[in-house]
Design a binder for these strands. Structure first.
Lengths: 345, 345
DNA sequence: CTGAAAGCGCTTACAG
DNA sequence: CTGAAAGCGCTTACAG
């Protein structure tokens, strides 16, 4: 009585249902899977017995032969609040289905651990959604083993898996255009070292837009790590340097917040002395006293779409889909005013 | 070739390992489980073959008879950033083990859906960690089916499951004591409607400490929902009312941030006109321009401890453990100054 | 349309 | 210490 109960103690199985409905075990299985070739009468009988006995399918047993109805989610890091939006989107898409998501996160924000992928495959996930930086070769290998959808990995040519992305190039342009319209010129981009395709896209969007406006000589991409102390150092160097930018476009809000913090500590006013634009439009952007202009890429939408694609892929689709969502900019206090310019003009 | 591969295509099983090591299937299973009664020679042989063949245990198959090595995590809502801390703690504790966590979240922040619990049980989770409000009767039922640890549910008398908690009573006291020391008197608590044990504890900590300092007549607990519009309404009513409190202790940072936002919009200065203290000490407390005094309950520590308890419970412990962590207060700008008092004294 | 039987990859008594 | 065999709860050809 004190012993842990066996996994199957008292469990109602399809065998019980079959007996109760006076049909074969195979018939029950077919009803369960909504498979072809069951008469209406039989289906009704079986459904009735299932309800009556409170039958619940045993996922592990199903997983032995078929599907586990479980998706593996691989996130690089849960602490970036943007991922909460993604997760929310995935969950809401899955909610009406029988699928559920298993989330695994790396301890490091920089890479995806192969061990995590293996562990998901061991657990017979029906499919995988991988978020973040991981090399194409690895993805290609994974896709041969499991249906795969990536988020935040631009690879529009691949035919092996689906991709879901923000139009990151447009995001870079959007940030620059907004800043220019508000009179900023010396616009620096704070980017990520050891970046991924999304970073490169954002960088080139930034660069192209600067050049388009004749500001090629101000193009300056400073790349650092995501570690908090590093960000502080980089931000301070940038803000205290002889040639302080008048605006900084940060590759993610998380970093932008820290840059604002550093600027404030240095006695600089945002946006009067330096404007800041972030990316992701996380909830914190207008939380408390924060007011950060940011590019919204709708994590929720990206998550929903990824879940949708994975389901359709599991259902048999084999051609690759590449979903891109167009970002929009959300204007807030961190970039709104440009007094010096206003005064001049 | 275009068909989805069977779950077991080309898989290396214990049968292959057994053949390669020239031992029985049962022997391989024993080595795998580090079970009793295998000679060193045999263990070595088997391990060698496992490595050589790249054997990986099939979780679903193990789940049919024994453990799945997977924990089910049930969170009320992923969007409160405090949960990221919990998750992080759980993950870091599990990392060196063979256990993995499956996270399920409710769409509603208020309650745990029973369907979620069922789904976890169907998936043969070895144990469950449930975070947040859920009634004791339901918990008691669940604990009869699965090893269970709760976080954020005070029930020190139960013998059926483990609990991991912040000392929420101390938290309430701590907030009040700090505010009083800084000269605040009219301290209101913003609490949660349809609360849980943690809320009640915080409320009584607040109340007791107020009374202890002879401020019983200022005791005022205002309870609202977590929905954003509601919070705005409640905050505004409180701040615009005839009898504005000079300090507000909010049951969670998430709410505190919104109260600060509302105060700022109303032209009130924080902390000069009204001090704010939150609870959870989430990362956002000193993110960007935020500077929120908050009670730190170390989500990471709570998460780690919950994971540790669940493992030991699965390993056979049957007596209930109740872990309580003592909170500390982290002082920041939102409650630091009390000019009017300073001037008077 | 319906069902008997084999089998998925493990674990667990049980016998040697 | 070691292994043969039954069985966990399903699904999947296959035969009727």
């Amino acid at each position: 009585m004190k012993k842990p109960e066996g996994a199957t103690a008292g469990r109602v199985t399809i065998r019980h249902v079959a007996a109760d409905a006076e049909v074969s075990v195979a018939a029950v299985s077919k009803v369960l899977r909504e498979a072809y070739g069951v008469s209406d009468t039989m289906r009704t009988k079986v459904r009735l017995s299932m309800a009556k006995l409170g039958y619940r399918p045993h996922t592990a047993a199903r997983g032995m032969r078929g599907q586990t109805f479980t998706f593996g989610l691989i996130f690089p890091d849960i602490r970036n609040p943007f991922f909460a939006d993604l997760l929310h989107g995935i969950h809401s898409e899955l909610e009406p289905t029988q699928y559920q998501a298993l989330l695994g996160t790396s301890q490091s924000a920089e890479t995806i651990e192969p061990a995590l992928v293996d562990s998901m495959i061991d657990r017979q996930m029906d499919g995988l959604i991988i978020v973040g930086a991981i090399d194409q070769e690895q993805l290609s290998q994974i896709s041969r083993r499991k249906p795969l959808v990536t988020i935040g990995n631009h690879d529009p040519k691949t035919r092996e898996y689906d991709t879901v992305n923000n139009d990151d190039r447009a995001a870079g342009s959007l940030a620059v255009r907004h800043l220019i319209e508000n009179g900023y010129r010396k616009i620096t981009m704070l980017s990520l070292l050891a970046g991924s395709t999304i970073i490169w896209e954002r960088e080139s969007g930034y660069r192209d837009e600067m050049i388009r406006h004749g500001l090629g000589s101000f193009v300056n991409v400073v790349a650092g790590s995501q570690a908090r102390p590093d960000v502080q150092t980089t931000a301070r160097r940038l803000l205290e340097g002889p040639d302080r930018p008048d605006a900084i476009f940060c590759w993610t809000d998380f970093i932008a917040m820290q840059v604002i913090g550093a600027a404030t500590e240095l006695g600089l006013r945002v946006p009067e002395d330096v404007a800041i634009v972030g990316h992701d439009n996380i909830q914190d952007c207008d939380f408390g006293q924060n007011s950060l202009t940011s590019i919204d890429q709708s994590g929720e939408l990206l998550g929903r779409e990824a879940a949708r694609l994975l389901i359709s892929r599991i259902r048999g689709r084999v051609d690759a889909k590449h979903f891109v969502v167009t970002p929009r900019i959300v204007l807030r206090g961190s970039s709104r005013f440009r007094p010096s310019t206003d005064v001049v003009s």
